[in-house]
Computed example of a mutant assay.
Amino acid sequence: MSDEHTRVQEFFTARAAGWDARFRGDGPAYAAAVGRLGLHEGDTVLDAGCGTGRALPALRAVVGPRGTVLGVDLTSAMLAAAVRAGRDGEGRLLLADVTRLPLRDGVLDAVFAAGLIAHLPRPEVNLEELARVVRPGGRLALFHPIGRAALAARQGRQLTADDLRTEPNLRGLLGGSGWRMTSYTDEGTLFLVLAVRRG
């Protein structure tokens, strides 16, 4: 396991128990973002880096009982918190690395990824891995419940032009890894980038 993977595991393991309480008001933002992903009843969707599974109820509500919802996370403590919250009833939870997914090519209709982009060790290669498991025409949502400026303020840092999440940077990154960006929203209460898997 790489140093970056170990750092991510340590960071989230230390915070897993209090994660939901810390971000208690984010549910409506998750539901709204999932609503913009373009899912249909019966679709198969992955929550990549699902954490405590906060997106799983909204994903299940859209794909319905005939759909398939998967939640993948690198940190067992976060998945344990998802189980304690009862979210394992909304989808299948897998302890796995999103940079090497245990899924066949093209099996997904969509990927939802909340807060994931900042934790990818090799973003272009890792976004290619997400593209691998999504069918052509399938969709990707990169989401955060607050925008870049609010997140930077929360973390005590300044926004810079080399921020991975700027529109030009993400457009190029996605374009080079099998995706086409279709929309970019960066507001105080929402960061949401939508992309389509190229054929």
Rank of each mutant, 00 (worst) to 15 (best):
P121C: 13
T166F: 04
G71D: 04
R122C: 15
A110T: 09
S177F: 03
R36F: 08
A17C: 09
Y30V: 02
V63M: 11
L95C: 11
E10L: 15
A61I: 01
T13P: 03
H40A: 14
A80V: 07
D73K: 02
G35R: 05
A14C: 06
D43F: 11
E129I: 07
R165I: 08
V125S: 13
D43K: 02
F143G: 00
R132N: 09
L130C: 06
L140V: 04
L74G: 05
E124Y: 03
T13A: 15
R139F: 01
A16D: 12
G71K: 10
A33S: 13
L142M: 01
L164W: 09
R180L: 08
G138K: 10
E129W: 06
F191H: 10
V196P: 09
D47R: 04
P102W: 09
A152D: 14
E4F: 09
T68V: 14
P168R: 03
Q9H: 14
G38V: 13
P145N: 00
A153Y: 01
D105Y: 07
G86R: 08
E124S: 14
G178D: 01
V62A: 10
G49I: 01
A149K: 14
L103G: 12
R36L: 14
G27I: 07
F143V: 04
R36T: 06
S177A: 15
T6S: 11
A195S: 07
F11A: 13
F143K: 00
L159W: 00
T166E: 10
R157G: 05
G53S: 03
D3Y: 06
G137L: 14
D186P: 07
G138L: 13
G176N: 01
F143Q: 03
P121T: 11
A81N: 01
G199V: 11
L127K: 12
S2E: 13
A195N: 12
R84T: 15
R165H: 14
D43E: 04
L170K: 08
P136C: 04
R84A: 15
R60D: 02
E10I: 13
P168I: 01
A14T: 11
A80M: 07
A33H: 01
D47F: 13
L101P: 02
